[in-house]
Design a protein around this nucleic acid. Structure first.
Lengths: 335, 335
DNA sequence: CTGAAAGCGCTTACAG
DNA sequence: CTGAAAGCGCTTACAG
């Protein structure tokens, strides 16, 4: 196991000084092209590997970005994380990722660890715990930090908040069901009082109030299991809603499967619309109408905004919401 | 923006030398407890943050582990990745993650980048391209590297390979269908000639040959869409199989939804069994029988094995397969 | 148990 | 366009 070569070895092989090698590494324009090529050949020949620890010590960027996600097993967040990571990779940044599993203590730990590693920036989809100290520490660290998908800290001037326009989404869903002739529209899923739930309910509330309709909520974990349970519960109810806006596609898919067990046909006997537009929604039977949240391109946009901040110093706007889109499929149509 | 404090500042505040501070940082047992406490208080007071770049330069471990995944959007791999990352985090290791999206060039790039960052070890679920150079480079780097879920490089003595016992799984599935009285059992999904497909087919092949039954394959991308299409295609066929072993739950779920559209009831008109046991499989209707691959605890085991290699020098065995389990639910029963 | 000194591999002015 | 020199913040023997 021979010692790994340094710029000094490269310099010797290329017949230049070690500063010149460093300049080549920085892609400095002040190096003659022939010299650059000679140096690069020397690096290839002796198997030189850039040592970022050394560079970092001298003040260079670590090339590391921290990505902290509250629930990495949830496909919605996974899609986001994958998109962000790949956007960073394109620009040469490596992503240090951590799943906090909604645990604020774990979140504090992983963020502390990432700061030690010298990450250049943070993208955080935070836990809902009211843990100000972690954001305080981030502020003191001076590391550019974006909160995404969940606004937990109100200092959006410090920690820009990017998300999707859920309010418009739920208004579109409610209006669509109303236009399809639904009399009794309910909202299903989402934990009460959570910011995301409030947002995804608000457009529904708005329309119901404007049209003086009765509002009905079935709150709960936005899971497939919850959707199925609610569907089975209300299946027997004569006065059950004839229009259902679900917190997420997962809830809606659970409802479809729950209704299937009880002989109720979505699209015919009841209209259901989801939220997110995950892949399965266009493949299930009946096809699920939904509010499309293009997480993948949202992730790319958020990552690009952060890179702009990092590389050009252009701080993103304090709050930004990306548009969502109504997708009409079988589950809200007579088919 | 005042300069960030160093161990020298801590030393001054605590009234000790900087070596002592360093020793405290290493958790060295040769520091008096009262001294340790004084140092820790000083660190807290002046907001000291450990600089890993500096430590790394001097030879300390980077505390970084690279996790390279061929398809991070696939829930199967996501579950694995989340589990691995959290196991590492428990031991204080940060995880640098990258999705290669089955692109060998991208894979080579992200691995090179991670080596520059000085990762202490690699967990790689590789792309299928025959890119030996990347593994050659890994071998030269001397960084402990495990291949998981897909064996691409045959040097398992160098790169231990951990996966799940798919062969037994598919044998269990085939035997179960045979015992349930199926006459004509087919295998659906999976790209032909891929190692994973070969493994997931092998147990089926074995049993079919042992019992001199006819083998039927419907190869294709292991997606929901593919499952649905095959279901709709064979729905009309009078001689269609009465037992279906699917490459993955996704394929099986697609088939269930495809059959639903054509009025065929899984469990009654045809028996279907999946592979993986994703969450949805216990919630869909009818409930899906499947071969459970506990990816989450597999991830934890693989991560633990790597940590043992890293911390105790105990190299994992060359090839290890974790057991899978037959889960019988409605889709293979008369219900 | 603690201190003084050397050095890890880079980058960054500064000369030339 | 290139070279010599200082120094980033740690760790690691080595004394004491």
């Amino acid at each position: 196991m021979t010692k790994r070569p340094t710029i000094l070895d490269v310099a010797r092989h290329a017949g230049v000084s070690k500063s010149t090698v460093s300049l080549v590494l920085q892609n400095s324009p002040s190096v003659k092209n022939s010299t650059r090529i000679a140096v690069e050949e020397a690096m290839a020949k002796i198997g030189y590997v850039y040592n970022r620890s050394a560079a970092g010590l001298r003040g260079a960027s670590s090339g590391l970005i921290g990505l902290v996600i509250n629930d990495l097993r949830n496909p919605f967040f996974t899609e986001f994380a994958a998109s962000v990571q790949m956007t960073f990779a394109e620009k040469g940044f490596a992503t240090v990722v951590a799943n906090t599993d909604e645990d604020p203590t774990l979140q504090a730990n992983v963020i502390a660890s990432m700061i030690e590693h010298g990450v250049n920036a943070f993208v955080i989809s935070p836990t809902y715990a009211n843990d100000k100290t972690v954001f305080d520490r981030l502020e003191r660290s001076g590391i550019p930090t974006m909160q995404v998908l969940r606004q937990v800290d109100e200092r959006t001037d410090v920690f820009p908040f990017f998300s999707l326009d859920y309010q418009t989404g739920s208004r579109l869903a409610a209006r669509h069901l109303a236009e399809m002739g639904c009399e009794n529209i309910a909202f299903v899923g989402g934990l009460e009082d959570r910011p995301v739930t409030l947002e995804r309910v608000s457009g529904y509330d708005e329309l119901m109030e404007a049209e003086q309709r009765r509002k009905t909520y079935f709150y709960g974990r936005p899971s497939r299991a919850f959707g199925r349970n609610i569907a089975r519960r209300i299946a027997k109810d004569q006065n059950r809603p004839d229009g259902l806006i679900c917190f997420s596609d997962l809830v809606a898919l659970g409802m479809i499967s729950g209704f299937a067990e009880t002989g109720i046909q979505p699209g015919k006997d009841v209209r259901i619309i989801g939220f997110d537009d995950i892949e399965e929604s266009s493949l299930c039977y009946p096809r699920l109408s939904t509010i499309r949240c293009d997480v993948s391109s949202f992730g790319k946009s958020a990552a690009d905004a952060l890179l702009g901040w990092l590389e050009k110093g252009s701080k993103p706007e304090a709050v930004k919401r990306y548009p969502v889109e109504l997708i009409v499929r079988q589950s809200t149509l007579q088919f």
